[in-house]
């Protein structure tokens, strides 16, 4: 015997959709700015028909069954895209919870026997709850992906390597230098050294708020790796406070070329490359 609830839900597809849409549109958190009502309707219709057409006696209590693959796929893509579009968890949750309301409403209208209604409502409720949990998990994963990507982007953006002269690279470091950041700095710098054939790299740390022994260690590593490649590394932008803490902490930077400003580092680099910058003789223009 086919479950009565299933029969009803399949027959009343249209009514459910209308009721679901009504619930969704009623919600004051509806994001018409992020998604048009037409899109919302077709998205809802697709999900609903995937749900009712695949629903049968065997899988009604098992949201993970093979029959619901399509439902799960649609839900996953809905929650991922909502996460990326900036929907809140509440807004996303309301989408699936209002489906539950719509389904229960239809059952209530169609099933007269209270005990049967109770049994079927519990079953449908459990099934949709199970879908909701997955939706949330996927939604969160979507958000985390966004955060991870942004973190990567920030790290990339905040470590530009600039070729300031033929053979001279400059790398202004802004913000703290932790070990993950150091890896990115090193990789970018060494890669650029190879690409440009540069033999001097200036690491400017004016934008680094504090230098403790860990940060110093990261700097020393970067200098060592640069030297292994066959380039020399100058650290510039050393403020007086930094010089003080470095010495107080007993950090040995004596093997490293340090300069207080980027300009003086550049001057040193010119000397090392045997370049001379002179003012153009302007007398004969007068």
């Amino acid at each position: 015997m086919k479950n009565e609830a299933i029969r009803i839900l399949q027959k009343k597809n249209k009514a459910i959709l209308e009721s679901w849409m009504k619930f969704q549109l009623l919600d004051e958190g509806l994001r018409e700015d992020l998604m048009s009502n037409d899109d919302l309707r077709s998205q809802s219709e697709e999900l609903l028909s995937a749900l009712t057409s695949n629903l049968n006696d065997n899988n009604i209590e098992d949201a993970k069954s093979m029959g619901f693959e399509q439902v799960n796929d649609i839900l996953a893509s809905v929650s991922i895209s909502r996460a990326k579009q900036g929907f809140s968890p509440r807004e996303t949750g309301n989408y699936i919870f209002s489906l539950k309301n719509a389904l229960l409403e239809i059952l209530q209208q169609e099933i007269k026997d209270p005990q049967e209604l109770y049994m079927q409502s519990i079953k449908i409720g459990k099934l949709i709850d199970s879908f909701s949990i997955d939706t949330f998990e996927t939604f969160l994963r979507g958000r985390e992906d966004v955060i991870l990507r942004q973190t990567d982007e920030i790290t990339e953006i905040s470590t530009p390597v600039i070729q300031v002269w033929d053979g001279i690279l400059a790398l202004p470091i802004i913000g703290t230098l932790d070990s993950a950041r150091t890896q990115v700095v090193m990789e970018n710098l060494l890669q650029k050294i190879v690409e440009t054939g540069s033999s001097i790299a200036i690491l400017d740390i004016s934008g680094v708020p504090a230098v403790d022994s860990l940060v110093a260690q990261h700097l020393i590593k970067t200098v060592s790796a640069t030297r292994l490649m066959g380039a020399e590394c100058i650290i510039s932008g050393i403020r007086p406070e930094i010089a003080q803490t470095v010495v107080h902490l007993g950090i040995d930077l004596s093997n490293i070329l340090t300069k207080s400003t980027l300009a003086s580092a550049l001057k040193t680099a010119f000397t090392m490359l045997q370049l001379q910058v002179t003012r153009k003789n302007v007398t004969n223009l007068n």
Binding site: M186, V194, S224, A225, L228, M229, G230
Partner: peptide, 30 residues
């Protein structure tokens, strides 16, 4: 020593072997 790959240089430093007694250059010409 010439032409060390960036990944190798980073790894050597992490390993704790900065080869401080050895001169390096970017390529054969240099």
């Amino acid at each position: 020593v010439v032409g060390m790959q960036p990944a190798v240089a980073i790894t050597l430093v992490e390993l704790g072997l900065p080869l401080s007694g050895v001169f390096s250059a970017l390529n054969v010409e240099k």
